[in-house]
Design a binder for these strands. Sequence first.
DNA 1: CGCCAGGCTAGCG
DNA 2: CGCTAGCATGGC
Length: 298
Amino acid sequence: MENGAIDMQSLPGGFNLRLTLESGQSYGWRRVDGEMFDGLDGATYETVADGLGIRISQEGDDLHWRATDDATETIERLLRLDDDLEHIYSTLPDDPLLDRAIGRYRGMRLVREPVFRCLISFICSAQMRVERIYRMQRSLAEAYGDEIALGDVTIHAFPSADQLAEATEAELRELGLGYRAPYVLDTARMVASGDAPQAAGNLEYESAREYLTRYIGVGEKVSDCVLLFSLDFLEAVPLDTWIRTAIESNYPGCDRDTYAETSRAIRQQFGGTYAGYAQTYVFHALRTGDISNPEART
DNA sequence: CGCCAGGCTAGCG
DNA sequence: CGCTAGCATGGC
């Protein structure tokens, strides 16, 4: 077991652990000192990544961690501490909605999620409330994942594709996955048989989005989530219900006939390269109701 | 009770 | 191709 702290004082744009892990991007961290969204500061979270059991919490400019081995590089990668947030903010457009979201959520970073659990998480996300998605992924981890001992606590890893491929559809329905159960199972079996989603990483963005729809339960929107939250396509803008609402009210010129065309328009509206950052700030603001949309029709 | 949630698939025309 | 009915489950 090792302990450490990462000093984030000099990190451009800062860092906010709670916003980063409770904004519906990653469903792979479990909050251990309370339920998700209960608003407590100094929250503590656990996950397993790179085979390491990790527990982290934030106190001011320090990100404290305890892990089964040195987890510094893993944490920096998972939480995108390599992103220059100030530069990214500077590429996003000035508009009332985005300005207020950035002002309120300064330090919220995108995540760089392990791709298989990201894929499964967002297959499960279809027609599902964010709060329930967290519980579903935790159920999958407890039912099929490895148990990692960290001191006197046990952390459940998200199952590998091989592990999840051994489940049955009936079991997954028992966990409350509903009609997504066969999607999850078929996708896990595809990945387990060697069809790796990482292959999308070598493609140009729109080709990559098309590529991931090969998996059962993955359409354009879920594909965009995987590209954005796992595969470093920061220009990806998942067109979910909240973003579509924002497009209608705030960026009506971006509303087109097809997903692909609306995607191009909103990506350009959000400054191109880091458009996915804008998407995530707007998504969190509208979903939580933290910010009343200045352009919304009442 | 009805409605809706980070949509997708299959099966039409 | 584009379009849409149907889909599980739980919380309000």
